[in-house]
Amino acid sequence: MHSFCAVFKRELKSYFTTPVAYVFLVVFLFFSGYLTFKQGFFEIRQADMQAFFMNMPLLFVFMVPATSMRLWSEERRIGSIELLLTLPITVTQAVLGKFFAAWLFLVIALALTFPMVITVSFLGNPDAGLIITGYLGSVLMAGGFLAVGCFFSAVSKNQVISFVLSVVACAILVYAGLPSTLNYLSTFLPAGLVSAIGNISLQSHFESLQKGVLEFKDLSYFVLLIIGWIAGCSFILDERKAS
């Protein structure tokens, strides 16, 4: 446990000792607000945060890989992975330490969108449950994308390659489940396969949380998504750490 904590602490601190955290936070907070108001937050005349949460997948497709691309690529490029993995730390502990630090950082970024909650509460009487499940969905989605990013960061020493691969993988996870994509796929794929693709996609699970529906299948989807990609990351890192 102490090894996990050591990696977690170091990683979280490193976000704030470099400009990474501040650049990320400013860009994320700006666009999360900008997109919400641009998409008719006032015009809807409803005191809820739907307009805010519906932009999260699009924002996270770009922002989360930007956070995760450095996790392992940089360690491998500058060689500090040799330092880290010759300390009494296992690969899994190191992967989990870094993953949870990055996740907490994204949770902090989401928490800093609290003025949105204040605005909605000031303008009307929003349903607190909807806001809570919306945030829960966003946190889980951030974790899922982060696990994907973590994996691709371990794949290449080059951060740009890691970023591009993660963006593509995250975009597929989101866009495969959009109604327009599923409609198109149903023209030439059997219905069972189309529904499977819809279930594998993150979109439907995120949407049901956004609607305030807290179901076991949605939560287990995110948990499995995270565990699967993190396990892949540990495996690939163990194989390729010294290459």
Partner: peptide, 27 residues
């Protein structure tokens, strides 16, 4: 105690923070 060939370190850390991190990792 292992000193790698190119002495990889975490460059963004201060020396004190770095040594404290090593202490954390080594309990």
């Amino acid at each position: 105690g292992y000193l790698a060939e190119n002495v990889p370190l975490y460059n963004e850390m201060t020396v004190g923070d770095f040594l404290n991190f090593i202490c954390d990792a080594r309990e």
